[in-house]
Design a binder for these strands. Structure first.
Lengths: 339, 339
DNA sequence: TGTTCTACGTAGAACGGTGCACAGAATCGC
DNA sequence: GCGATTCTGTGCACCGTTCTACGTAGAACA
């Protein structure tokens, strides 16, 4: 009856302490390489840890100290520009001994919010948000509870959290200038729709601002910006009729590869030649844009650096920095046959 | 001097208990809607929770009970077939009240291992692994510590964890049969390289098995399987010379879009017409394959269903099931102009 | 009226760590 | 050789939950 099966107990800090013949506190100190342990004791404890294959419980740790875990909140897992950013984050975080866990916000505000709450509840040490949809106000609120660094959301006046961005308005200007230099004068922009006035801090509106000012600067008249509802199933159809219609400009600056690649595909399917009939420059320089069969010119915002800088910022804030820090790097155009 | 700034204390279960005028245990019961609470007390507590905006600490929870959090381990964040699987996982998990946190294993064994350990240490309730590189032995070991369900790794004899897969050998057969039905007889396969005999449980070897048996079944002689080291920087060059060389078959079955899309691109760049000079069928039916400019035929393995089934399995195991469960679903061919 | 059940609520011990206050040993300065 | 000062290591309270055991009040029963 009574199965003498000693349940394979988790090896805890107490097990180690006993095995090494020291106090629990001593083991804790060694784990955190805190001050006040002799080399002898340290070695002794490390041996026991090795022998017993001990790993501290994150949960228990979080209750008083740090968990050495960072959270990353993604817009959506299918954003082609994510892998780079993530690689940047991971390199810095790992080098500093931090682990990473991610959550997917699905570009859905309540979901992003609940993710952040969950990360707070898991006692993570800090959060990197990528292209968050969350309003600045909400972000301020969360940032009071946990250090946050944001990528792809301009909020240069925010006090409680840090931001890291490629200069989106400048990137748009560079794109327009490149088109102008090639001789195009009838230049339009496809932006993210629908337009929401309170989102001016997001990347798309910033690119619109840069676009408009570059158009004006070049003396090309009133800027033409087109929007297609990004949640609309009929979107592809709308793009098609836009390209077929009389309003189609000679050259298009597209706010993201996310739209640029479908537009390029639709255009070619309609028999339009790129760039002979329609010149295109998009944004993000995702791997798909680089495929020879696509070959779409695109602004590169160096995802890796964005990730690294954001993580640097986050770690220094975890380290105690109070003043906000807002970093801006310059994007650069990757030239391809589409313009 | 003495800034009367009461540190915005976290609202804990004690705060709620005090506010509602009941015991801590009562609040806990309400949170878990456990047995033994009157409706009156329940309402009272719920009100306080609402008013104080209380959320239980995951970490503290994990120390004794469940955390209602599932971990997802990904191969790499850039795998085009991931978003679907993830969507499937998320839908089932959320419906059951579970949260999800992900980690990226980067197709790197030690990293996968450390991720799993971290998830165990965070007291997660279970883990879904997607296309894990981990050996079966290691997986057995971890599965004794935490419920695990694996997608994209065939291990039909595993006892301690569950697996969910699309039938990869059957998928390969379907592809070959489709090629044969079109009249192709000189059919080769591009598989994942290098060949490692102990990986037979992975998807690529399974597809090789299906391919070989379909070739034999069709009476097409000895199966020809080509491999290109997937970590090699010179890989694209090797593919190019393969396509230019005399060994190029008339039709190719490619183990994944990951390779199929570059092959298609290289081929067209070389001036080869697809399918007139070279017919192609790949695997995974990723969104890129569906782009009109690519239009690559590909086996669809219904990522969503895989994700859902794996999560179902995981939840039922968390619920107490002991016997292993190994699910196999059928893939289907998405026909496009590439063959 | 007294006894047994049932339903509700509570006290208090876990859980596995961290970090503070402190004691004893070792080292130092003179 | 002695007090003062570091250096090590320990004991213990604490973090925010869950969960077991138990007390109590009221209903049901005899």
């Amino acid at each position: 009856m009574n199965e003498a099966k000693p349940p394979p107990q988790r090896v805890t800090i107490r097990t180690v302490a006993e095995d090494a013949g020291v106090s629990v506190a001593a083991v804790s100190k060694v784990m955190r390489n805190a001050y006040g342990v002799s080399e002898a004791l340290r070695q002794n404890v490390l041996e026991s840890i090795e022998r017993l294959n001990y790993r501290p419980s994150n949960a228990a740790r979080g209750m008083r100290g740090q968990t050495y875990t960072l959270g990353v909140v993604l817009v959506g897992i299918d954003n082609p520009f994510l892998p780079q950013v993530f690689a940047g984050i991971a390199s810095v975080a790992n080098a500093a001994g931090y682990k990473i866990l991610m959550g997917v916000g699905a570009a859905h505000m309540p979901m992003e919010a609940s993710l952040i709450e969950q990360m707070i509840d898991s006692h993570m040490d800090g959060i990197v948000m990528i292209a968050a949809q969350l309003s600045g106000k909400l972000m301020e609120k969360y940032a009071r509870q946990i250090p946050i660094a944001v990528i792809g959301h301009h909020e240069p006046l925010a006090q409680t959290f840090d931001t890291v961005n490629a200069n989106d308005s400048h990137g748009a200007k560079l794109a327009v200038r490149a088109l102008v230099a090639k001789g195009y004068r009838d230049i339009g922009m496809v932006s993210l729709g629908p337009y929401r006035p309170h989102d001016t801090y997001d990347v798309a509106p910033q690119r619109e601002i840069g676009f408009a000012s570059a158009i004006v600067e070049a003396g090309l008249g009133a800027p033409k910006i087109f929007r297609f509802d990004n949640m609309d199933d009929a979107r592809l159809g709308k793009i098609t009729s836009f390209l077929a219609g009389p309003d189609r400009p000679r050259a298009l600056f597209v706010w993201s590869d996310l739209d640029g690649i479908p537009i390029l595909n639709v255009a070619r399917q309609m028999g339009l030649h790129v760039p002979e009939d329609l010149a295109l420059i998009a944004y993000d320089n995702s791997p798909v844009a680089a495929l020879p069969l696509i070959d779409l010119a695109s602004m590169d915002q160096s995802g890796i650096r964005l990730g690294q800088l954001a993580t640097d910022a986050l770690l220094s804030r975890i380290g105690g920095r109070k003043a906000a820090q807002h970093v801006l790097i310059d994007p650069s155009l990757t030239i391809r046959s589409s313009f």
